[in-house]
Nucleic acid binder design. Structure first.
Lengths: 191, 191
DNA sequence: ACGATATTGTACCAATCAGTACAATCTGCG
DNA sequence: CGCAGATTGTACTGATTGGTACAATATCGT
């Protein structure tokens, strides 16, 4: 049983990379079997709902990771400045310094957004909200905290798009550098 | 003959909306015939290269529009501040205040990027470069002008992603408002 | 070792995919 | 009118799509 859930999670991770690379419509069952090494039998045993359930599982997995590694510290870490710094570092690592794009962003732009509307919206709303909380705890007034948070989340997404468009990861690095400055606490004694 | 090129351009415009909505892989010939009203015969008469040539024509059309309406004023308008303002207004209108996404951005995230790499890269490089020129002419030092330009282009893309993800056009409006402030000339007497 | 259950490879399905072929029709010109 | 060439609807292709059925196999507790 333990082996089962571990294998399923491995499969979800690989599925994520496939969906990331090819998008939802571009991901065929043939690509999935090749990329996961799992036959159709196993696939439909793990995910009886087919592609739809696979994508949902991937989105849940991603959301789970972000919730734990990024959103929770942002909300709860006693040191919000450190949490924001950790977010930037975590994001840089997660997106491979701009070499990896955001699957949720990809889904958001496609027509699949409607099918996974709640998950897509939840991911970004949570991110913006959590960051806003951390910024407010750093001394920013609530309204500027919300504005800064939205701006930061959007900048990360845009940086991923632009970095991939011009095929230059430095674009992403520079965007994060700017965010590091822009999100700096308004007063030093905030923590 | 004149009718021909006008009809072809109309077709390209409609094709653009279809590709925008469904992405490259998600756009089937069936969708295209339904969305353009053109049969396969006409389609392959206009675009012998098939989907590939259709997408290329769409990208060229978009690039042509931006080059004329946005990039050229940015570079040549005697009043760079006005050109930047016009860019923001033009972009707001073009993207329907956040209700319409950027096809080039969509392509950039997909695997089609490789097929249209030059066009995708050219679009964003030109945009960033033209805006950087305008900002420099406003009195910003060249390096900060380049940084600001990249930041602005990326913010627009990210705003489109986020606005669609959370299904709220206001996100895009707020991002443009921030840009209006961020791109303000460093000195009033620049024009 | 045994039966029950879970897992998986393979063959198969109807639907759809992008693209081709071509006869029928339309258009512009003399 | 009549002809040449452009345009277009329709039928068709072979390949691929997501998904199902199911027999063969592996794994499990006992």
């Amino acid at each position: 049983m333990a082996r089962l859930i571990r294998e399923r999670r491995d499969a979800v991770r690989r599925l994520g990379e496939i969906f990331r690379r090819h998008g939802y419509e571009g991901t065929s069952l043939a690509l999935i079997t090749a990329g996961t090494g799992l036959g159709k039998g196993s696939l439909y045993n793990f995910f009886p709902g087919g592609k739809d359930e696979m994508a949902a599982a991937v989105l849940d997995d991603i959301d789970g990771w972000f919730a734990e590694a990024i959103f929770r510290p942002l909300r709860r870490d006693p040191d919000p400045v450190a949490a924001i710094g950790a977010m930037l570092d975590g994001v840089a690592a997660y997106f491979d310094g701009g070499g990896r794009i955001c699957l949720v962003g990809v889904f958001a732009l496609g027509e699949v957004r409607d099918r996974f509307a709640a998950r897509v919206q939840g991911y970004f709303a949570e991110w913006t909200s959590a960051l806003s909380v951390a910024l407010a705890r750093c001394g920013h007034p609530p309204d500027v905290a919300a504005d800064l948070a939205e701006d930061a989340v959007l900048a990360i997404q845009g940086a991923l798009v632009l970095a991939r468009a011009v095929d230059d990861r430095m674009v992403f690095g520079r965007a994060l550098d700017r965010l590091r400055i822009r999100l700096a606490p308004v007063n030093a004694d905030c923590a």
